[in-house]
Amino acid sequence: MIRVNGKKHFWYEGMTIKDLLNNFNKSHLYAVVRINDKHISRPYFEKTLIPDNSEVFLIPMVAGG
């Protein structure tokens, strides 16, 4: 089990960020995801595994600078 934006979400062994985002609408708007305190950017979604019990935050980043 993991938590995504504070809500419980199912988890399975080998789950990547890309797999997780497939469960959300308009997931293309998430270019950055935070797993616990580490930011992961879209180029690494496919190969980044989500550990069990992670706190995951989908970051709707539109700004910076």
Binding site: A31, H39, S41, M61, G64, G65
Partner: peptide
């Protein structure tokens, strides 16, 4: 602060 931008900018 804005240090979160460093790895994100690097990734892109």
């Amino acid at each position: 602060g804005t240090t979160h931008l460093v790895p994100i900018m690097n990734d892109f």
